[in-house]
């Protein structure tokens, strides 16, 4: 059995007196796509932020090669005052991408932003900004991708691009962890699911086959009553 690409061991996270995460233990193998499910406030974003290194757990440990991870959070994480090329060049430098200029040009072409590569991002439409954010997250061929509600408010073209890139990423053995409420899009990719209920792990394992036909099956079986 291969070593997990990421592991969370008995993690607790408190905000003041409030336990946002309670004794979470889970892992994801290389090539797995783990869908983090749960209602608003269940702790999905908190767990992803811990994995991304944006916060530290109150108790417990996390194992993850962060310098090989990619992250898309709630914000798109691009600089409006910089051009698309400058945005990508910045992150290519931070991630030590070899042949950065060529890699950036490739991603600009792939995300159909080559035509506006040298225009400031503030002049872009919402869809163009989303595609730039996707290019930024995938630019360094990450081994682990951490995605917080990645399909929310994406246009059709960006959803198609993201799904295609996620399939490619999983195909080369990388690991994807994504929190989502868009169950149909997520179930097309997920190999494993984890359901959080009020900060506790209610289910973690391979995606139940029942979820293909009924994505809400897991909520009905393990989630809170509506």
């Amino acid at each position: 059995m291969p070593a997990p690409a990421l592991a969370v061991d008995r993690v607790w996270k408190y905000f003041g007196e409030f336990p946002a995460l309670r004794d979470i233990t889970l892992d994801a193998a290389p090539g797995a796509c783990l869908a983090l499910l749960g209602r608003n406030g269940a702790g999905k974003t908190t767990l992803l932020r811990l994995l991304a290194g944006l916060a530290t757990p109150t108790r417990g440990t996390l194992q993850l090669e962060r310098h090989r991870a990619g992250y898309i959070g709630h914000g798109i994480g691009i600089y409006d005052d910089l051009s698309a090329r400058e945005n990508l060049m910045l992150f290519a430098r931070l991630y030590d991408v070899p042949n950065a200029r060529a890699a950036v040009s490739q991603w600009l072409t792939r995300t159909q932003l080559a035509r506006v590569a040298d225009s400031p991002a503030r002049e872009f439409s919402r869809g163009m900004r989303q595609r730039l954010a996707i290019a930024r997250a995938f630019l360094h061929n990450p081994d682990v991708l951490l995605l917080d509600e990645p399909f929310t408010s994406l246009d059709d073209r960006a959803i198609a691009l993201l799904q295609e890139l996620l399939r490619e990423t999983l195909g080369r053995g990388a690991t994807v962890v994504m929190s989502t409420h868009q169950l149909r899009e997520a179930m097309e990719l997920a190999t494993h699911v984890a359901l959080l209920v009020r900060g506790k792990l209610a289910f973690h394992g391979p995606r139940p086959p029942e979820m293909i036909g009924d994505p809400t099956w897991l909520y009905a079986r393990h989630g809170e009553p509506a």
Binding site: R49, A52, G53, L54, R66, H67, A69, Y71, G73, H74, G75, I76, G77, I78, Y79, D80, F91, L94, Y95, D96, R136, L146
Partner: peptide
């Protein structure tokens, strides 16, 4: 802060 760029920087190897 406008696009949560600080989170993306802190999640990077910097």
């Amino acid at each position: 802060t406008p696009n949560d760029s600080l989170d993306v920087l802190l999640a990077s190897p910097v």
